[in-house]
Write a protein that binds this DNA or RNA. Structure first.
Length: 516
RNA sequence: GCGGGAGUAGCUCAGUUGGUAGAGCAUCAGCCUUCCAAGCUGAGGGUCGCGAGUCCGAGUCUCGUCUCCCGCUCCA
């Protein structure tokens, strides 16, 4: 079956069984916003726990925080988001292509420069040795005309950008007859400002209210708390600060189910190191993070690294861990060497010293940072997409049956155990309840007595419950139950005390953590 | 924002030349008691996305509008 079909089925399966719902579906939904349902919330919680424990419990030099979504507006100036996260966009009405207005103008300016260079090259050829480039540029009428054009354009361009004057930007495009590379026409829509950050007002009285942003990434909450954590926790380099939290981006296009949402959750760790050591730690965390993913057992071939050639303004090395989603290999996690960009920038903007005294080197410096940042929702989608399986079962009498199973790694499955009385009388339900009451403190259990046993197995398969136990009449006598494995469908007769041992063994998160 | 597709029960869909909504599955109750779904009986559930228009009469025709999905532009 085509991957796209699987993806569609996965989406409706998620809805049907209560993993993911469209936000505000009652009101026709809200684009690129989703809610997690009763099982989705459990799965998500388990993923978070796996990550959080892998970071904070397994590493004594990593601690976790939970910073607020609202932050001081200057944080986003310091981080570069105010400048870099807002784009003026314009559409060509003929080709239907969309462009960044500022880039169109930049490219046009490059062309003007190229014209000047062409004149210079031509002149060089003509005059040979005696050519004086500066003299030529200062006197040649064609060069001067172009230079004048460039100067005027540059000034108008800068003014327009500073004032966020979209009308002026459009005028620049039209006045200079900048054409669409595809259609070749100058038939443009108005230039509109797209800011990737959501803003809101802090303070209820409008005159006193100031504009603040919903954080577009969680990292800054860690950076601004660097000194707090380092000092109060007596942390010594190298050490890390981990955080799980929501971030918000007003994406122009946000699609592919929960892969790209406007409101999403990140699991992020910033690791602070001595300058010069960053590449060592960058490599270390690349491997560690991959190991975390591989431990889930979703197939080693489904992962790959993608090293960035073009680096963001803050980074000196960056790689993605990509996963083979139903729509292709896509970014799941980023590992970035962020240098001292963020801490230095906050130092500048706040006017406070953000440094670490290194007793070994006997000096103060701004630490370098290696970041690991994984999308929680993407991890969720990865697990769901990888778990979704349609199986054919040979019933023996020539008939073929089909079942849909979510082969979610047992340790993070939303429901760990279903307890099913074979019939709903003769005291079997009571026995089932008794078992649940004993196990429910440690495991998420579900009780079901409706319909035939086979149907109940299928329902548990569909939500990824790793184990079912069935209570029959003998169970009342010998305290034995039948345990059934989700993946193999094999059944085994065990005693109730054994049940707890098996669950402890098979469903424990420790199994995963030990592999990292 | 542009282009294309779609919107009828929880889900999948049917609905004739316009005559006030149906099926299967699911849900619930009861019966049956069965170790890998689809036994029997009954019940609940829909302003046909929303709003106008044409018509005696609109799920169906016309217009508008909203939302979702796909493609394009963007992506730290």
């Amino acid at each position: 079956m085509a991957q796209e079909d699987i993806f569609k089925k996965l989406i409706s399966h998620s809805k049907e069984y209560g993993f993911v719902f469209q936000s505000s579906e009652l009101y026709d939904g809200l684009s690129a916003v989703y809610d997690y349902g009763q099982l989705g919330a459990e799965l998500k919680k388990n993923i978070k726990e796996y990550w959080w424990n892998a970071m904070t419990m397994l590493n004594e030099n990593i601690v976790g925080i939970d910073a607020a979504i609202f932050m001081h507006p200057t944080v986003w100036k310091a981080s570069g988001h105010v400048d870099a996260f807002s784009d003026p966009l314009v559409d060509n009405k003929d080709s239907k292509k969309r462009y960044r207005a500022d880039i169109l103008i930049e490219e046009f300016r490059e062309k003007l420069y190229a014209k000047i260079e062409k004149e210079v090259t031509k002149a060089k050829k003509r005059f040979g040795e005696t050519f004086d480039e500066a003299q030529f540029k200062a006197t040649n009428p064609r060069v001067l005309a172009n230079q004048e054009k460039i100067d005027a354009l540059t000034k108008a361009f800068q003014d327009a950008l500073e004032a966020s004057d979209m009308v002026a930007l459009k005028a620049l495009i039209e006045d200079n007859k900048i054409n669409c590379p595809v259609s070749g026409t100058c038939n443009w829509t108005d230039v509109r400002q797209f800011n990737l950050m959501f803003d809101t007002k802090l303070g209820s009285v409008s005159e006193d209210a100031s504009t603040i942003y919903l954080r577009p990434e969680t990292a800054q909450g860690i950076f601004v708390n660097f000194l707090n954590v380092q000092k109060s926790g007596r942390m010594k380099l190298p050490f890390g600060i981990a955080q799980i939290g929501k971030a918000f981006r007003n994406e122009i296009v946000a699609r592919q189910f929960i892969f790209r949402m406007r409101e999403f959750e990140q699991m992020e760790m910033q690791f602070f190191v001595r300058p010069g050591d960053e590449m060592k730690w960058y490599e270390y965390w690349k491997e560690k993070r991959l190991a975390w993913h591989l431990a889930l057992g979703l197939g080693d071939d489904n992962y790959r690294f993608h090293d960035h050639d073009k680096l963001a303004h803050y980074a000196n090395a960056a790689a993605d861990i990509e996963f083979k989603f139903p729509f292709g290999f896509k970014e799941l996690e980023g590992i970035h060497s962020r240098t001292d960009f963020d801490l230095s920038s906050h130092q500048e903007h706040s006017g406070r010293k953000i440094q670490y005294f290194d007793p070994e080197l006997n000096k103060n410096y701004v630490p370098y940072v290696v970041e690991t940042s994984v999308g929680l929702d993407r991890t969720f989608l990865m697990i769901l997409a990888n778990s979704y399986t349609e199986e054919k079962i040979d019933k023996g009498d020539g008939k073929v049956d089909e079942r849909v199973v979510l082969k979610i790694p047992a340790a993070i499955a939303p429901v760990k155990l279903a307890v099913l009385p074979l019939v709903k009388k003769d005291g079997l339900p009571d026995k089932a309840r008794e078992i649940i009451n004993e196990l429910k403190f440690d495991f998420n259990c579900q009780y079901d007595e409706k319909d035939s046993i086979g149907k109940r197995y299928r329902r548990q398969d569909a939500i990824g419950t790793p184990f079912c136990v069935t209570i029959d009449h003998d169970s009342l006598e010998d305290n034995m139950v039948t345990i059934r494995d989700r993946d193999t469908m094999k059944q085994e007769r065990i005693s109730v005390p054994q049940l707890r041992e098996i669950l402890n063994e098979k469903v424990s998160m420790r199994k995963l953590l030990e592999k990292i």
